Amino acid sequence: MKIGTNVRSARVDAGLTQLELAKKLNISVRALQNYENGERDISAELLWNIADIFNLDMSYFVPKKVSLNVPKSVPILSPNQQVVERVQQTNTVKVNYYPNILASAGFGAFNHDLNVRVLELEEGFLMALGLKCFKNLDLITVYGDSMEPFVSNGELIILQRDVEAQNSDIVVANINGEVYVKKLQKDPIRKWIKLTSLNTMYPDIELNEDEQKYLSIIGIVRAKIRPF
């Protein structure tokens, strides 16, 4: 059963019209119709909001297991069977998703709302993104274009906390309450730390030894997800 069909069923069961639900979600009726008809994919954040409105578990909308009926005669196009087996793993990993936190790829963004939602993502999916460690993972949104082409405005990034950042790591850093996505450069001799942008239109942020007390590295960027 499609996700949009499940959304329609939940709405009808709750006795809401499309107009009433659209107002609660702050979207247009046409957009809701597209979601329910399967003409447009529903973002994870919007689906969470729908689940909250109807007080339903996410499993109501997204089946835990999806069976793909592929004939045995059709070859699977992948580098090797080992990759396929890893992606098919069903172990789940808990990832903290902060829908209201923005990491600025630009001039900094203040963040005060630490609302968190715990997502359970399949280990195989995270492996397909290139992750090798599945502990202390956070998911946040990037705002700005200073780190293009590595990460673009509006993309989601997965970062790993409690790991010491090394030179040239892409990190999420907090400087006096402003949160940035930058490339880390450290000079232990001259004792400065520089946070650089990949987009040359943006200046570097250089911190001397005294200023480094205002800096904390939140985590290292391990993967990105581009929403559509």
Rank of each mutant, 00 (worst) to 15 (best):
T141H: 01
L119R: 02
K132A: 10
V118S: 11
N136D: 13
L114G: 05
L114C: 11
G130P: 02
E123Y: 07
E122G: 12
N111S: 06
L139Q: 05
K132L: 07
E122Q: 14
M147A: 05
L131R: 03
E148Q: 03
V118Q: 10
E148I: 06
A128Y: 15
G124R: 10
G144E: 00
G144S: 10
I140Q: 01
L139D: 00
F150P: 02
P149T: 04
N136E: 08
G124N: 01
D138F: 10
D138T: 08
G124Y: 01
L129C: 10
A128S: 15
L131F: 08
D138G: 13
G144L: 01
C133W: 04
F134R: 03
L129V: 09
E120N: 13
G124S: 09
N136C: 09
L129F: 13
E123M: 10
I140M: 03
N115T: 13
I140K: 03
D138P: 06
P149Q: 05
K135Q: 15
L114T: 12
I140W: 06
K135V: 14
S146C: 03
L119F: 15
V118Y: 08
V142I: 08
L129A: 04
M147R: 00
E148R: 00
E123G: 07
I140G: 00
D145K: 07
E123A: 15
L126K: 09
N111G: 11
F134G: 02
T141L: 03
R117P: 03
L131Q: 05
Y143W: 09
V142G: 00
N115C: 12
M127T: 11
H112P: 02
D145G: 00
